[in-house]
Amino acid sequence: MTGYIVRRVLSMIPVALLVTIALFVLIRLTPGDPVRVILGQEATPQNVKALRHELGLDESYPVQYVKWLGRLAHLDFGRSLASREPVRKAIGERLPATLELGLTGFAVGLIFAIILGTVAAVWRDSVWSRLTTAFSLVFVSLPNFVLGVLLILLFALHWRIFSPGGYVAFSRAPAQNLRYLVLPASVGAVTGAATLSRFVRSSLLEALYTDYIRTARAKGLREFVVVARHAMRNALLPVLTLAGLALGGLWEGAVITETIFTWPGVGRLTVDALGRRDYPIVQAVVLIAAFSYMIANLLVDIAYAYLDPRISYGRR
């Protein structure tokens, strides 16, 4: 098992390097001279030259890339062009809000996906199954920003149950924090449940028609035990892959959801940075998102190997 994990981690290295090269190329493609963006068009040639040297922009691209990689290894993403504060600090301050929103939406969505998918698979020709399928089809086709707007219209403006946007730290006012959290987290939860419930359903349906389930029923086990203990265990393995990817991709949802609900997280920081053309922040967020995506994939693979005894750890 340890050998498998080491090999899997090592296989990530070339992909991680390619990711950094791609991002470095994208940074260099970005129009506009970063020195002019920082100093303004009125800067003297001496100042421009000095800052260019300070930022290492007067060196060759390979040298710049290696030095940039070295800084990344120390989690040094440079400074924001607009506020001049370190990018790491800007992201670090907003990360807790993003994680709170993303993880809550993900967890609630996963629970609902398992419930809905199970109902649709166990009672496959019932009205519940059809309703679940319809729910999934409708909400997969509904963009999260449209869903967010609909939720604000209904629950904030029409019924006035929740606030249309805002945030207060959980440590300062827990109840108020949760009140603000409900609508944006619902967007992530509904979208996640719609996507994952289809996979839970088809995966569980497949499991319910296998020989070991027939054997379990023949032994006289209660249907609940057959589904929950025997079928579910195997059916949830493929779902784990998608759930891992959804977790890694919560940055995507953050960008949209935080914009709609004025949630002060990393997603909103990214959108604001896009508007101000504050490239270091955008690139840092993309890089962190890519790496967390890769790590989520890695964890899924390791969990898979751990949970499924049929997966071989050895070399072929």
């Binding site: 992909v15 991680a16 390619l18 994208l26 960008v255 890519a290």
Partner: peptide, 11 residues
């Protein structure tokens, strides 16, 4: 390795 919409944003 890039989450879809974030790659599009970077491009």
């Amino acid at each position: 390795a890039f989450p879809g919409i974030l790659l599009a944003i970077a491009i």
